[in-house]
Simulated scan of single mutants.
Amino acid sequence: MTTIRDVAKRAKVSASTASRILSNSTKEKYSEATRSRVIQASIELGYRPNFAARALVSGKTRIIAAIFPRVYDTPFTALASLQILSGIEAYCSDNGYHMLISSPKVTADSELDPTFVNLLSGGYLDGAIIDGHFNITPIIDAVTQVKLPCVVLGHHAHTHTLRSDNHAGGQLMMQHLIDLGHRRIGIIAIPDIEQRFLGVKDAAEANGIAFEDLPFAVGNFSEESGEKAAAELIQKHPDLTAIVAFNDRMAMGAIKALSNLGYQVPDQISVVGYDNLPRSADFNPPLTTIDHQLASWGNQAMNLLLDVIRGKKPKSIVLTPQLIVRASTGKPST
């Protein structure tokens, strides 16, 4: 069996140098020529690293769990989650780590699947990144019990978090419509995103709009739920001139429903979403939305997690959202 020493000898470097290069270590800087020699030698010799042996020596498996509850549950499999997972995977690939995706089931009694608990406690993982946009209290409790380093995505009381300022994002989307002259605004909300809801509320009240008088419907992240909610809103409140949807998929569903009912967006009614998914720019009409830097979440979450693993005490990260104005919003016609 080919060993790392064989690779090092062929590449004319030390065994430690060969090991660092093949594990994509970022602690040491090597010339491209040195890297190329080591990689070429490993290919020529058919070298395959023994991860189990490496873990025994270093005490690290270099495996990170991306714990995303309900990621496989169709209404919740949002492109937002896939963007974050893609960022985590890219960082792991570039830096010698491996990502394991876990979507644990949490029962009504807040019980976790025993196999998931075994995964956390079995010494397989160096750390975890947890999607905190759902009920994750049992997961956090289990992670804390085994002292596994972790970062939580979203608004959560955990020590190490990465999140967008949902309150500011909610204010931005509502203020944009108000600045255009809209006052009769319907809301398609998601109960789990409280800060976004409060941001919309605060913007309305700051502009003299009685928030409790604004009609709202509840969605579940999916395009279908946005379609249903928008149809309900416009049929009950035909005087609406704008709709705020708490994510892009529901906003797209809302536009589809409005079109089916004979409304033109934005000539007769404006729609604003949230997430700035790649599809939003190509939608018809292109969707006005809130960009909360989803493309960078995976990279930033991994950097934060590695600081935690190394025993540092990093500050949690709060990302500032940005309004992206496109063709789905305009001034009210009346």
Rank of each mutant, 00 (worst) to 15 (best):
T2F: 02
T3N: 10
V7L: 11
A8W: 06
A11E: 11
K12Q: 15
S14Q: 00
S16A: 09
T17E: 00
I21Q: 00
L22M: 01
S23L: 03
S23E: 05
S23I: 04
T26V: 14
T26Y: 11
I39Q: 01
Q40K: 07
L45P: 11
L45Q: 08
L45E: 01
Y47H: 08
R48I: 14
N50E: 03
A53D: 01
V57N: 04
V57M: 09
G59V: 05
K60M: 08
I63M: 14
T74S: 14
T77M: 14
L79D: 05
A80V: 06
S81I: 12
S86T: 11
S86R: 01
G87Y: 04
E89C: 06
A90M: 05
G96W: 05
G96M: 00
Y97K: 00
P104R: 03
A108T: 06
A108P: 08
E111K: 15
F116A: 11
V117Y: 00
N118L: 12
N118V: 00
L119H: 12
G123P: 07
Y124H: 13
I129E: 00
I130V: 15
H133F: 06
I136K: 02
I136W: 05
I140C: 08
A142T: 04
Q145E: 10
V146M: 07
K147D: 15
K147S: 08
V151K: 02
V151D: 02
V152T: 01
L153E: 09
T159M: 02
L162I: 03
L162P: 07
N166W: 04
A168Q: 09
L172Q: 03
H176T: 13
L177D: 05
I178K: 08
L180K: 00
R184I: 10
R184G: 01
I188G: 12
A189W: 09
I190E: 14
P191H: 05
P191F: 02
R196C: 10
L198D: 10
V200L: 05
K201W: 13
D202Y: 14
A203N: 12
A204E: 13
A206Q: 15
N207M: 11
N207P: 09
I209K: 14
L214F: 06
N220W: 07
F221W: 14
E223R: 12
E223F: 12
E223A: 11
E224T: 07
G226C: 13
A231K: 12
P238F: 09
D239E: 06
T241G: 08
A242Y: 08
I243R: 10
N247F: 11
D248K: 12
D248L: 02
D248W: 06
M252I: 06
A254K: 07
A257Y: 05
A257S: 10
Y263R: 14
Y263Q: 03
V265Q: 13
S270A: 04
S270D: 10
G273P: 04
D275F: 05
S280T: 01
P286G: 13
P286T: 13
H292I: 03
H292K: 03
H292E: 04
L294G: 12
A295W: 14
Q300N: 07
A301N: 11
A301M: 10
L304W: 05
L305C: 08
D307R: 07
V308P: 11
V308M: 12
G311N: 00
K312Y: 07
I317T: 09
I317V: 12
L319V: 00
T320L: 09
P321Q: 04
Q322K: 14
Q322Y: 12
Q322T: 08
V325Q: 11
T329S: 13
T334L: 12
